[in-house]
């Protein structure tokens, strides 16, 4: 989702790393990517090959894996294992756990800075955001935020870190240089996920219990609009927005609606839903393939991942993964 590198560069660098030791990479088909899915109940990570759309490997990890992200260089996958109070590091080459990070208690979601040097982790249990130096793998400090910090994102210019707190119901704006909160914007109940438009002009925050997505002006720190959802035949309470994915051109947003079992397609100019795509049960998080041809979403209750054809705005495939799939990341 936060692919900083183009696919070709990434493949070249990986090939460089492998140093001719392994030949299988050269044989990788042109449009194959690798997706890692955290299975919250299964205590596993499923590895999906996007050429064959199959699970190629299931990796045993720590307890309650949720937030999952590739490092910027694509070499490692970090997965927050909340009940083990740490973040495990999976080597993308060997697909083995090689290290852990000092995250603080019950890490859930985290985000890296643009350079991939710093990691910001939401620790739900003690109302803090922990800052970790990724190279030295040490904890640099904590920032006090609201009750139950969850959603994390960094502004495209790297200056502002956003954290949402689920019981305080705010998006906290944190200056990445001073590590001080500079603004707090109240949103609807239980804010779960935050995402910037790539040009930095808007911050979108989903409110799971409120049932809305707030659009915030990141300079003025005000809510400038809200996206609401209406699905015929579905009661309002069942519509619980969580994951948000925006295309690079900033024109289209995809919003996972939890137990509504749908992903809403939103025209970002009009801020209106143009389509609802039926996916699996309790859809939460999502990731684009780097070429933005496909969007993969995790369906917790049906234990699968739906594949959305992005240009066609159609669900084309369902892949069975482990128990209660939660987060997803795709190699840059």
């Amino acid at each position: 989702m936060q692919a900083a590198l183009k696919r070709e560069t990434s493949r070249m660098s990986r090939a460089g790393l492998l140093c001719g030791m392994v030949v299988w990479l050269a044989a990788t088909p042109a449009h194959a990517f690798v997706a890692y899915v955290s299975n919250e109940k299964g205590n596993t990570v499923s590895v999906i090959d996007t050429e064959s759309w199959t699970v190629t490997r299931t990796i045993k990890v720590g307890q309650r894996p949720r937030g999952i992200e590739f490092t910027r260089d694509g070499k490692f996958v970090m997965v927050a294992v909340g009940d083990d109070d740490t973040i495990q590091v999976i080597d993308a080459k060997t697909q083995a756990i090689v290290d852990t990070l000092p995250s603080g208690p019950d890490p859930e979601l985290f985000v890296q800075d643009a350079a991939g040097k710093l990691l910001y982790v939401a620790n739900e249990n003690d109302n803090t955001v922990t800052v970790i130096d990724l190279e030295k793998r040490v904890r640099l400090g904590d920032i006090q935020v609201g009750v139950e910090p969850e959603g994390m994102t960094v502004s495209p210019d790297g200056k502002i870190l956003i954290n949402t707190s689920e019981t305080t119901n705010m998006a906290h704006f944190i200056d990445t240089a001073s590590r001080q909160i500079v603004a707090n914007v109240l949103v609807d109940a239980r804010p779960r996920f935050a995402e910037f438009k790539r040009d930095g002009s808007e911050l979108w925050v989903s409110s799971e219990i409120g049932g809305t997505v707030s659009i915030i002006d990141p300079v003025k720190h005000v809510v400038t609009g809200k996206i609401t959802f209406e699905i015929p035949g579905l009661r309002r309470e069942a519509i619980q927005p969580v994951g948000i994915g925006m295309t690079r051109d900033g024109k289209t947003a995809f919003i996972a609606l939890g137990p509504a079992n749908r992903v809403a397609v939103v025209d970002t100019a009009t801020r209106k839903v143009t389509k609802y795509l039926l996916v699996g049960q309790r859809v939460w998080h999502m990731a684009f393939t780097p070429d933005e041809k496909y969007l993969l979403v995790t369906n917790g209750v049906s234990n699968d991942v739906s594949v959305i054809d992005v240009p066609a705005q159609k669900v084309i495939k369902t892949i069975q993964v482990g128990e209660l799939p939660w987060g997803i990341t795709i190699a840059p």
């Binding site: 001080q180 914007v185 109240l186 707030s214």
Partner: peptide, 21 residues
Amino acid sequence: MIRWVAVLSIGLSIGPGAVAT
């Protein structure tokens, strides 16, 4: 509804901003 929330958020964001300064 949307306008109301926007106005509210302005009010709210002033307080904490001010706290920081």
